[in-house]
Design a protein around this nucleic acid. Structure first.
Lengths: 153, 153
DNA sequence: CTAACGTTGTTGACACATCAACAACCACCA
DNA sequence: TGGTGGTTGTTGATGTGTCAACAACGTTAG
């Protein structure tokens, strides 16, 4: 709200900013193409399965899953319905809380995850990590953390 | 396709990768909230208007606009229909090529852009650029360029 | 106990992106 | 000239994300 003048981006800043914008769209697109081709999963499917697979008994309350994924519950609900229809996850009701449900990995879900994971790791390395030194990694990590702090609600 | 073993991400790599994924969603979300609150535009509207405003006569062939934005023509066509309905752009037909059309900035479109731009620049600085040294900027630029090369079709 | 309030997960309406199909048109060549 | 093939921009179908509203249930205070 303050009316202090903010200087326009100079050439270098603009270049980096526009590159960032492009990477933000091209990188997920490339990773998504790759994972879909190799496993029929989307990146969103994959993320969901990863978090579930790391949970005790490979199952989670839906809200807990939403929190860990930083997804809105509505979005997750829609997505789980579709994944459930494809047999990747299953829902079980929760005895301790009549409102709640659990989502669990199915056999098929775990199989899909295991078949997709190595290729995805390879893609993340090949596109993103390869060629980064320890120093650069640390620097990038710090930068991302700073942005995250500022952008978070 | 080669079956060479690819090592899993170590702790540091995983941390940076997951941060990247979060920034990739949170940063556009924060910028989008900001620009929508101040001007009623979406980030996509804004990008469209920026490119148009930089064109000679503030108008462009639709394919040229799509190319500059790295958007599919179909996506752009849908988006322009909505923006046109809101009076932000207008379409004119092209005399040299009976298939083609021009899109042009309207008065209202330029006004919306000019009212949104300073706040957006401030947001990009505040969330993304502030606190970055020249060296870091150069490093990030190099990194992004590298990723872009690898991820591009 | 119960009334008030918060939580859980779902739903439907809508905005947006992707994809394939398409009509209209241009350019080129036999 | 007329056919062939590529281009332009649009459309409709489909999948997905966001938002507001909601029923069902839990929690707490009086």
């Amino acid at each position: 709200m303050s009316e202090t003048e903010v200087p326009w981006l100079n050439e270098r800043e603009m270049q980096v900013w526009r590159r960032w914008l492009r990477v933000q769209t091209e990188l997920p697109a490339a990773l998504g193409r790759d994972i879909a081709r190799h496993s029929g999963l989307s990146l969103q499917d994959f993320e969901t399965l990863v978090v579930l697979s790391e949970a005790p008994d490979e199952r989670l309350r839906i809200s807990a899953l939403a929190d860990q994924m930083h997804w809105e519950r509505s979005r997750l609900s829609h997505h789980l319905r579709r994944m459930s229809a494809r047999g990747l996850v299953s829902k079980e009701d929760c005895k301790e809380d009549g409102r709640g449900s659990f989502v669990a990995l199915t056999e098929q879900g775990r199989a899909a995850l295991e078949s997709a994971a190595p290729g995805h790791v390879r893609a993340v390395r090949g596109l993103f990590l390869d060629g980064m030194s320890e120093d650069e990694l640390a620097l990038l990590g710090g930068f991302l953390e700073r942005v995250l702090q500022r952008a978070s609600v």
